[in-house]
Design a protein around this nucleic acid. Structure first.
Length: 468
DNA sequence: ACAATGGTCC
DNA sequence: ACTCGGACCATTGTA
């Protein structure tokens, strides 16, 4: 028996859990502890968190709350990492062969059309082929030359068929190297599962990050991505994957933080929030087209990031002027949002920091910088942090609470992944119903406000099936 | 080893 | 002129 005090709490009391801590220490702090130095490793993990927390929880009433949260989460994460995610390697390799075959075909076609062979993955060689050999017009520049990113290539592909093939080739190569081959290498041969490492304070806002492999940027938007996700499976035939994600959490938080009446009502009406904003932005139109809804969705997200008209226009494909008008209209329809941001920035300039609903802080020393670019960037960081950070606090708190409730109720369910506003569980089939009730109650219950958080739950044999 | 470029996620 | 918040990773090419 070991008694390890982490923070102010006694968190572990069995050898198994201490080993979990040690695994966590080794994985996340690049420190390899021998058996007789486990106490030292634990202290190191503790102090590492403690040091990072100095920046996010300096002396005030909220400090202990954040420290407690992170120290409890440390144990939860160590168990998630050690347990890992079951993975269907055979299925992944099948997908890999199919992609490889298509990539080969594309390369043949591209070389045929271009009239010579070259390395399509090389930015430098691609620039030379497109702009010098073929004489296509270059539109955007990078620091060192003429850009060949997706935006530029999409425009060119309207006129030149070969560019469309190059775009497809690039997408498939990305999928193949980063995801298919990357995930294949990440399968631990001993456990046959994938064990990521979470950086608990990986982002300045309080969010976590995931590395080796990063399970927080697995593709999600097309059929091939769905197939890759379907390789993440339940750990037995009598088990299921359960996905629980917060619906529109950042906009709901904005509604609560700003107390804007129209934004609150938009949620209380139960209507699709992007459609609701579209109707407010384009009130003079009888029908809302998909383009209008896309614009509204862009504005809704953009406002959370402290958007500029220029940035929004890049995202939605409209002109900067039209994008700026939409942003102005957004603030006119949701006036308290602008007031909230004005007050937030004023406060940040005065105190030097912004904070989440839990009191987690981000210090912004450049909020009064003489350089306008730096100052405005800092203002956008200030606007984004309370929303992104509160989201992080809330889901972290839910993770700690869920872990403890599973234990308390003897539920055969394991938390296996976190993707910012989504939790994934590996659950015994017979426990699925009870687990779903607990998951929803806890996730929705950890934060209460006028506009409540809504959790959507899906169940399936794999990660994709559970989300569908 | 490292910078630059590009791409994936929330 | 103007590059929207927060991350991680692969590849190429230069050092």
């Amino acid at each position: 028996m070991y008694d390890i005090e982490i923070g102010s709490r006694l968190l572990s009391d069995t050898p198994e859990r201490v080993d979990d801590f040690r695994a966590y220490c080794e994985r996340s702090h690049r420190y390899r502890a021998s058996d007789d130095t486990r106490t030292f490793a634990l202290e190191k993990a503790y102090w590492s968190l403690h040091g990072a927390l100095e920046f996010q929880a300096s002396e005030d009433d909220s400090r202990q709350r954040i420290v407690d949260l992170e120290m409890h989460l440390l144990a939860v994460l160590s168990r998630m990492e050690a347990y890992g995610v079951a993975f269907d390697r055979g299925k992944l390799r099948q997908i890999g062969s199919e992609i490889r075959e298509r990539v080969r075909t594309l390369e043949t076609e591209i070389f045929e059309l271009v009239g010579e062979q070259f390395n399509i993955n090389s930015t430098k060689q691609l620039q030379h082929i497109l702009y010098d050999r073929l004489g296509f017009p270059a539109s955007k520049k990078t620091k060192t030359g003429r850009s060949v990113d997706t935006e530029v290539l999409s425009e060119l592909s309207k006129h030149y068929a070969v560019v469309g093939l190059i775009l497809e080739h690039r997408t498939l190569r990305k999928l193949l190297t980063t995801y298919v081959e990357g995930l294949d290498k990440s399968v631990n041969p001993k456990t046959t599962r994938i064990h990521t490492t979470y950086r608990q304070l990986g982002a300045a806002t309080g969010r976590m990050s995931s590395e080796s492999p990063n399970l927080q940027n697995i593709p999600a938007w097309d059929e091939l991505s769905d197939r890759i996700k379907s390789c993440f499976i339940a750990s037995g035939h009598d088990r299921r994957i359960m996905v629980a994600d917060y619906s529109q959490v950042e906009l709901r938080l904005l509604a609560n933080l700003s107390e804007d009446e129209a934004l609150c009502r938009a949620f209380e009406g139960g209507e699709d929030i992007h459609m609701r904003t579209a109707k407010l932005l384009f009130w003079e139109h009888i029908t809302i087209t998909p383009d209008m809804r896309r614009m509204a969705k862009g504005v809704n997200f953009g406002v959370i990031y402290g958007i500029t008209g220029y940035g929004l226009s890049k995202m939605t494909g409209t002109t900067p002027a039209e994008a700026s008008r939409s942003i102005e209209t957004f603030y006119a329809r949701y006036p308290r949002v602008r007031e909230y941001y004005d007050a937030l920035l004023e406060n940040a300039r005065r105190t030097g920091y912004v904070a989440t609903v839990f009191g987690r802080r981000r210090y912004l020393p450049t909020i009064r910088d003489a350089n306008r670019m730096i100052r405005e960037r800092t203002e956008r960081e200030a606007i984004n942090m309370p929303i992104q950070g509160s989201n992080a606090d809330i889901i972290k708190y839910a993770m700690v609470e869920l872990s403890s409730q599973f234990h308390e109720h003897g539920i055969d369910a394991r938390m296996i992944m976190q993707v910012h506003d989504e939790l994934v569980f590996d659950v015994a089939s017979q426990a699925v119903e009870r687990t779903a009730v607990i998951v929803r109650d806890v996730m929705e219950g950890v934060y209460r406000a006028r506009i409540p958080l809504i959790v959507e739950i899906g169940i399936g044999e794999d990660w994709h099936a559970a989300k569908a």
